[in-house]
């Protein structure tokens, strides 16, 4: 250990950051706009995540839901589902929280450039995908057709109604969505997300797909995409694990021999196929 060739890093200290605004999206989800000290940009890639730190409550990995094209501030969409996220929902604009990151391997945007892009989002999976959707829309000329499909349990859980309305209005975006269970007001599709995949008109060889949703969704979406003859090579998926440290040490997010916090959360589907524990 005498020949020190590495630079030792303090990996576990958060950067205290300001919450600029909090927006209630649904009964379960809120969106937080966050500024790093002195409005430093986070310098993230679409698909990456941060560790949110609240003293007394610990840390939790949260996907960044805004595009780096809209920096310096960034956004997190958080579902209240545990001690830390419940506490986070009680915070208001002006509060501070700790941020570590960005971590992980995001979407490689160069792969998507010049191609038709299809986004497949299930439930809260729309939040991580939104970082890439917004990136795509902000640099619209770099991409060919853009299609977004989104499935949610019921109309009350629709995450970004304003953004969705904008996507519907745009001539250069195709948007479709479905709910598992309708209520009286709902006039759209009813059924799981795989039911709106067959009608898609796709130039399959030239379409790159980004998928994110709950664990149960992947197998069925991937089957439906296969039935559309989309090559596996054109599919990228974002996986959820409990990334505790974010720096490839703690072991919690390991899928076979990969650490999701290092090699993911965004994976090329052919790689995921070789990982037995992935989906």
């Amino acid at each position: 250990m005498e020949n020190v060739v590495y630079e030792k890093k303090d990996l576990y200290y958060p950067v205290m950051s300001d919450i600029l605004s909090v927006e209630t999206l649904t009964a379960m989800e809120k969106r937080f706009q966050i500024a790093m000290p002195e409005n430093q940009p986070l310098n993230h890639k679409p698909g990456q995540f941060v560790e949110v730190s609240l003293f007394g409550f610990g840390e939790a990995p949260i996907s960044i839901c805004s595009s780096p094209t809209r920096s310096p501030n960034f956004e997190l969409t958080v579902r209240a589902t545990g001690r830390l996220t419940d506490k986070m929902h009680m915070l208001e604009a002006g509060s501070r929280l700790g941020i570590r990151g960005p971590f992980g391997h995001g979407f490689d945007v160069d792969v998507f450039k010049g191609k038709d892009v299809l986004f497949v989002a299930g439930g809260i999976g729309l939040a991580p995908l939104k970082s890439l959707i917004d990136y795509t829309l902000d640099k619209r000329e770099d991409f060919n057709k853009v299609k977004i499909i989104y499935g949610t349990k019921n109309p009350a859980e629709i995450l970004f109604p304003k953004a969705i309305e904008e996507w519907r209005q745009k001539d250069d975006v195709e948007f479709d969505m479905t709910v598992d269970r309708a209520d009286k007001s709902w006039k759209g599709n009813v059924g799981v997300i795989t039911t709106i995949i067959p009608p898609l008109q796709l130039d399959v060889e030239n379409t790159v797909v980004a998928v994110c949703g709950p664990p149960v969704m992947y197998r069925f979406v991937l089957m439906a995409l296969k039935a559309k003859r989309i090559p596996d090579d054109n599919i990228y998926i974002s996986l959820e694990r409990r990334m505790k440290c974010g720096v490839g040490k703690c072991g919690h997010c390991q899928i076979n021999d990969v650490y999701v916090c290092q090699d993911g959360p965004v994976f090329h589907y052919p790689h995921v196929k070789s990982l037995e524990e992935a989906i």
């Binding site: 030792k8 890093k9 576990y12 720096v247």
Partner: peptide, 10 residues
């Protein structure tokens, strides 16, 4: 040491 060298251990 590999990846992100952690100062606590090292």
């Amino acid at each position: 040491e590999q990846g992100q060298p952690e100062s606590n251990y090292l």
